[in-house]
Computed example of a mutant assay.
Amino acid sequence: MQMSRETLRTAYRQMRTIRAFEDAVNRAFSSGEIPGFVHLYSGQEACAVGVCMHLDDHDYIGSTHRGHGHCIAKGCDIDGMMMEIFGKAGGLCGGKGGSMHIADIERGMLGANAIVGGSPPLAVGAALTAKTLGTDRVAVAFTGDGGSNQGTMFEAMNMAVVLKLPVIFVVENNGYAEGTGVDYAIGSRDIASRAAGFGMPAEHIDGLDFFAVYAAMAEALARARGGSGPSFIESRCVRHHGHYCGDPQGYRSKEELQAARANGDPLLHFRARVGASALLEATELDTIDAEVEQQIAAAVVRAREAADPSPSALLTDVYLSY
């Protein structure tokens, strides 16, 4: 699948933005500036960007507790995200949701979700809405390998097939459900084969390869928009950090962690691919790196200086009257 130089630059900028954002959040959390828990997306950037570059604001995604990358790839405002994570009034959810509950309905971002396996039913509901109203919108459910064991996932997949809904299930298999390895927790050792059992197209892809993700998503999207129903993508990737910031990761050796960052980096894979093919110059990518670092640094400063939520806001946004 051929892409223009501008599309490639956009893809790299999105991936680099996610990485820089997560690095900045990691530093701020480690210094005690961010309340609550933080789960970093570093190492999985190619999946979020390869999927979401095909979508627009009218399409939906459901996310996980590790949702910053999905938010950025779907177009959520960087400043609003950073303020939300810092717990500030200017955050996308008024500073009330924090890292694990960022949502932006105007962008089709149905929310990060602290419930393991929580996004598939939400995405199926959004897809049912799209089919009922006769729109060409689609929904994407991002889930981790741990979430793939949940009954919510199985029920959502079955309903999607039965009703032939425009939904795409994307499982980001990073090898660990918190600290439990895939080889132990997945009886079949093959997550995608479960989806095939429900009667939908399912495939495995290299989640470190942006181009593989992009191509797989293009096929799944064509089926969804064309009325052919759901698809399933198992994206095998590498988690660069622990389950959460501060996780000692006693279940991973130092050698594994070093290899994960050296050999399992989608940004390095992308740079090598476009460089070898003379699609983009290294200097172009370096310029993007510098611009993104400035953008994220400025977002951190604004978040630090932003106002805290007013106590009077405590009881707002609790109920919605239809």
Rank of each mutant, 00 (worst) to 15 (best):
L268W: 04
G91R: 11
T316N: 10
S193M: 05
T316F: 08
I18T: 02
D206K: 11
R236P: 01
F169D: 12
E219C: 06
R19P: 00
A141G: 07
P248D: 11
L40C: 10
L314K: 04
C47A: 13
Y184S: 10
E84I: 12
G175F: 13
A185W: 00
G94R: 07
R137M: 10
R273P: 01
I186G: 00
K74W: 08
A103G: 10
M82A: 12
K74A: 09
D317K: 13
F21H: 02
D247K: 09
G62D: 00
I191A: 02
A202H: 09
I61M: 03
G75C: 04
P201K: 01
M53S: 14
H241D: 15
P230V: 03
G108M: 04
R66P: 06
R271P: 04
D23V: 00
V274P: 08
Q258T: 10
A73M: 05
L92T: 09
G179T: 12
Q258E: 14
E305L: 12
A306S: 15
A298W: 00
T152P: 00
V171H: 09
P120K: 04
A185I: 03
C93K: 11
D23I: 06
Y60R: 09
A46P: 07
Y176E: 08
A126H: 01
Q295Y: 02
G181Y: 10
A298H: 13
Q44G: 05
D59K: 01
A20N: 00
G242T: 06
M217G: 05
A307Q: 14
A215W: 02
A220F: 02
S310T: 12
A126G: 04
T283E: 15
S42V: 12
G32W: 04
R66V: 05
G75S: 07
M157K: 03
E234Y: 05
N149F: 05
H70A: 03
S148W: 01
Q14P: 00
M200G: 06
G36K: 01
G87L: 09
A212D: 01
R225P: 05
G97M: 02
L40E: 13
I233S: 06
F154P: 00
I18M: 01
V171F: 02
R225T: 13
I61T: 09
S321F: 14
I85A: 02
P121G: 11
I105D: 09
D77K: 04
G90R: 02
L8T: 08
H204N: 14
H240D: 05
N263L: 13
K74H: 07
G197Y: 05
G264T: 02
R271G: 03
T132S: 12
G94D: 02
I296N: 01
Q2P: 10
R189F: 06
E33D: 15
H204D: 14
L110Y: 05
G75H: 08
T129V: 09
G250Y: 10
G67R: 04
G144H: 01
G134R: 03
L40M: 08
F86I: 06
S277P: 00
I233F: 06
A303W: 12
H70E: 08
G250V: 11
R223L: 09
Y176H: 14
T152V: 03
M157G: 04
A262K: 14
E22G: 04
Y176R: 04
T132N: 11
G175A: 13
A130W: 00
Y12F: 10
F154V: 06
